[in-house]
Design a protein around this nucleic acid. Structure first.
Lengths: 337, 337
DNA sequence: TTTATTGTCTTAACCGTTTGATAAATATGA
DNA sequence: TCATATTTATCAAACGGTTAAGACAATAAA
């Protein structure tokens, strides 16, 4: 089929060793010999086999990324950043959507270990015991988990400070005069959802604001879930003046539902989201939201990963990223009252 | 490091051949021997090296996917579908965002050939000569291009019938009584943008409707581009009653801009998009748009790819997918006049 | 009893690289 | 001139699997 290093060596009239060395610049080779090798390689359209190479050097320059679903715009944006970093560092990214299914996760985990990827980035949000044990079974393999994770000795974690983010959101609402605040969040078995709820509760308590039971709704972090959550909220006897929605996807669904029901945003109802996905700037009205530093998150994930690949036995560390508020137009100041 | 087939063989007291055969179920092996092998493998936590295997069997069960950017929700959704199909067929997907940069594209192309992926899915939209020649240089490698492409003898193409889609959009607007129709499209060096514009023009001419010069705007398929396009449109002396926007991302930007400027959608201005991205159902108002059958597209891409991998010398074929209209609430019937 | 057949497993070559050990040729110094 | 360095390139053994060909018993057939 395609040319091998032997073919190149033969044509250049040198040994494969020499070819290897000139192509990798790994040892001095006389200028003229080099040229012969380059020319032979060129003529044969030679592309060295990374698989043979990997077998020998014991690394593949590929990383696996395990993510719940890239259908979620936040994940999509993050994956995008991660891919960028991988490219910059000379790695390939193999994308694995788990769809939250344990079987798919395990299957991918097996594939990735067999393919001998150099490391795995995990972004599955859930803190599910079975997932956990599946991962731990692969403890030999460098791993950084990006939004979740039981701290194991040899895995790094890097995550957004979601309780802080929730505080930021609530604080902003309060500063705008809101007191009657609702919450539509993600499924509680996902860490960020849990943290945002905790932050919400904490912040409300610190401000001495009551939390009305039917104003805190657990949903699923998806568009449709936001819609449903809002529907449920609108069916309450008395309505809040503002709602903190656990991510931008749900915020979009929620806004859509509210507007379809004729409630004006932000005049009648203020909404604040979480994630700061690209498109949230283009909602009508543009969404005020909490920004997760996605680029930074990706950069840290990759640099941490590379560090761990180079030094697998170092103790697992945990990095916390600070979110920040980005105000646009979906929350109004409550004037009267 | 990790156990090899030899370790397993040793521990089970058999040859590596036997181990290989029982693990791959590729030849009969006595029941008791099988058990010994399984147990040994289990005890050693053995994971066969796919890289060693690939070297021998000459395939990697991985596909590369070259895509402009997964930041665009349409691509993101498509990649998602593709990933699903890959998984189902036992392939890994390595994700390569080209960001429209030739250098990155070439670099990835090189990486992918070296990694010996079994095939490459190309979704770069542009019909750029240099890209073209880069790809052709790799003609040995199975390739299916998903939205673009100079037909080469040995590459398959599968694409959405975008001119048909544009017809559908314009027809719908006309049926709703619109006559003053504008168009905001993608960059003309991308095939879908070109086709949609062609379809727009064709459909308008067939209906004997005039196309006003400053009502056809070339933008960039991005959120912000849609916003800018709408801004430009709104600055015209006389406004259209409807606008056909070349994709949903731009439609979102356009709607946002229009609404920010106080024009009511669809009462004052109807909008129809293209792609039917998930989130377009959650716009305010929900977006009427042209649906590209993404799932079908992905399925066809993968099945075509597998066919080509199995039979690389067959003639390249071209498959056209039919879009369809999905009506929601962003276009209103023009009543009076 | 001898030969053929069947069932079960092993030997060894090969896939395409990298790399430590070593050799050949030439230059340098005494 | 000879011993030693230096420069340049080669040999051959891995790496971890797969698989064609063959080996060895045990059993069946002649």
């Amino acid at each position: 089929m395609s040319a091998t290093i032997k073919d190149v060596a033969l044509r250049a009239g040198v040994s494969t060793t020499t070819v290897s060395h000139v192509l990798n610049k790994t040892r001095f080779v006389a200028k003229t010999t080099q040229e012969r090798v380059f020319q032979a390689a060129e003529e044969l359209n030679y592309a060295p086999s990374a698989v043979a190479r990997s077998l020998k050097v014991k690394n593949t320059k590929s990383l696996g990324m395990l993510v719940t679903t890239t259908l979620n715009p936040f994940f999509a944006e993050l994956v995008n950043e991660v891919e960028k970093c991988c490219y910059r560092e000379g790695y390939n990214l193999v994308l694995c959507n788990t769809d939250g299914e344990l079987e798919k996760t395990n299957s991918y985990l097996r594939m990735l270990t067999q393919k001998r990827v150099d490391g795995i980035l995990v972004m599955c949000s859930a803190y599910d015991d079975s997932l956990f044990s599946s991962l731990i079974g692969q403890r030999n393999l460098p791993m950084v988990v990006m939004d979740w994770g039981p701290s194991d000795d040899y895995v790094d974690r890097i995550q957004d400070n979601s309780v802080k983010g929730a505080h930021l959101a609530i604080q902003h609402l309060i500063e705008q005069g809101h007191k009657r605040i609702a919450y539509i969040g993600g499924p509680l078995e996902k860490l960020p959802a849990k943290q945002r709820l905790d932050g919400f509760i904490e912040a409300m308590e610190q401000a001495n604001l009551a939390i009305q039971d039917d104003w805190v709704i657990e949903s699923d972090f998806e568009f449709e879930g936001g819609k449903l959550g809002m529907r449920q909220l609108l069916s309450c006897q008395n309505l809040p003046s503002a709602v903190f929605v656990g991510n931008d996807a749900m915020a979009m669904g929620a806004m859509s539902e509210a507007q379809l029901s004729g409630v004006k945003i932000p005049q009648q109802l203020s909404i604040i989201g979480y994630d700061n996905c690209m498109y949230s700037a283009y909602f009508s009205p543009p969404l005020t939201t909490i920004n997760q530093p996605k680029e930074r998150l990706a950069e840290l994930a990759i640099s941490t990963m590379i560090e761990r690949i180079e030094n697998p036995r170092q103790e697992g560390k945990m990095i916390m990223l600070e979110p920040n508020l980005v105000v646009r137009s979906s929350v109004a100041a409550v004037s009267a009252k």
